[in-house]
Amino acid sequence: MSSKDEKNLTQVIEKISKMNEPQRSVMHRVHKIIVTADPTLKPRIWYGMPAYARSASTPALVTLRNDERMNLSITEKPAFRPAGGVDGGLMPSAWYFENVDDVTEKRIAEIIRSVAD
């Protein structure tokens, strides 16, 4: 890991650590899910939010927000695929959550891997 990557990781961990509980614990868990699902993604701060990109100098692919609700979002940078089925041509790009159970953890990992494709 380069020193820039280490600095960025530290900034993301610090940003998450400043959140109030229970969001802090949930966001730490989501961070771990993301970096485990795709170890090539590099944590960084993007517009003040924890985010994950291919490198320290490329746009973020995924962001985490903690406003009224916690949110996992795919930015406009990765290739989107229409959802199909009842959602037709809609392309899912954001998911709100209040906690993370095993089912949600699995889905977050799937989302992250789909961004990496």
Rank of each mutant, 00 (worst) to 15 (best):
Ile13Pro: 03
Ile13His: 02
Ile13Tyr: 00
Ile13Arg: 07
Ile13Asp: 04
Glu14Met: 05
Glu14Pro: 00
Ile16Cys: 08
Ile16Gln: 11
Ile16Ser: 08
Ser17Cys: 04
Ser17Trp: 01
Ser17His: 12
Lys18Asn: 01
Met19Trp: 03
Met19His: 01
Met19Asn: 01
Asn20Thr: 08
Asn20Glu: 10
Glu21Ile: 04
Glu21Leu: 10
Glu21Gly: 05
Glu21Cys: 02
Glu21Pro: 01
Pro22Gln: 07
Pro22Glu: 04
Pro22Cys: 07
Pro22Asn: 07
Gln23Met: 11
Arg24Ser: 07
Arg24Met: 07
Ser25Met: 12
Val26Asn: 08
Val26Gly: 06
Val26Lys: 05
Met27Tyr: 10
Met27Val: 07
His28Ile: 11
His28Asp: 07
Arg29His: 13
Arg29Asn: 09
Val30Phe: 03
His31Cys: 03
His31Gly: 03
His31Pro: 08
Lys32Thr: 06
Ile33Arg: 10
Ile33Thr: 10
Ile33Leu: 14
Ile34Trp: 11
Ile34Pro: 11
Ile34Thr: 12
Val35Ser: 03
Thr36Val: 02
Thr36Leu: 03
Thr36Gln: 03
Ala37Arg: 02
Ala37Leu: 03
Asp38Cys: 06
Asp38Gln: 02
Asp38Met: 06
Asp38Arg: 06
Thr40Trp: 12
Leu41Gly: 07
Leu41Phe: 06
Lys42Ile: 14
Lys42His: 13
Lys42Gly: 12
Pro43Glu: 08
Arg44Met: 14
Arg44Gly: 13
Arg44Asn: 11
Arg44His: 13
Trp46Ile: 01
Trp46Arg: 02
Trp46Met: 00
Tyr47Asn: 12
Tyr47Phe: 12
Gly48Thr: 06
Gly48Asn: 04
Gly48Ser: 05
Met49Cys: 14
Met49Tyr: 13
Pro50Lys: 07
Ala51Asn: 14
Ala51Asp: 13
Ala51Ser: 15
Tyr52Thr: 04
Tyr52Ile: 03
Tyr52His: 08
Ala53Phe: 07
Ala53His: 06
Ala53Leu: 08
Arg54His: 12
Arg54Asn: 10
Arg54Ser: 11
Ser55Glu: 00
Ala56Ser: 12
Ser57Leu: 04
Ser57Lys: 10
Thr58Gln: 14
Pro59Trp: 11
Pro59Ser: 09
Pro59Thr: 09
Pro59Gly: 10
Ala60Phe: 00
Ala60Pro: 01
Leu61Arg: 14
Val62Cys: 12
Val62Leu: 12
Val62Met: 12
Val62Thr: 08
Val62Ser: 09
Thr63Ile: 14
Thr63Met: 15
Leu64Lys: 13
Arg65Asp: 14
Arg65Thr: 15
Asn66Arg: 00
Asp67Ile: 04
Glu68Lys: 15
Glu68Phe: 15
Glu68Ala: 15
Glu68Tyr: 15
Arg69Ser: 00
Met70Gly: 00
Met70Leu: 02
Asn71Lys: 10
Asn71Leu: 06
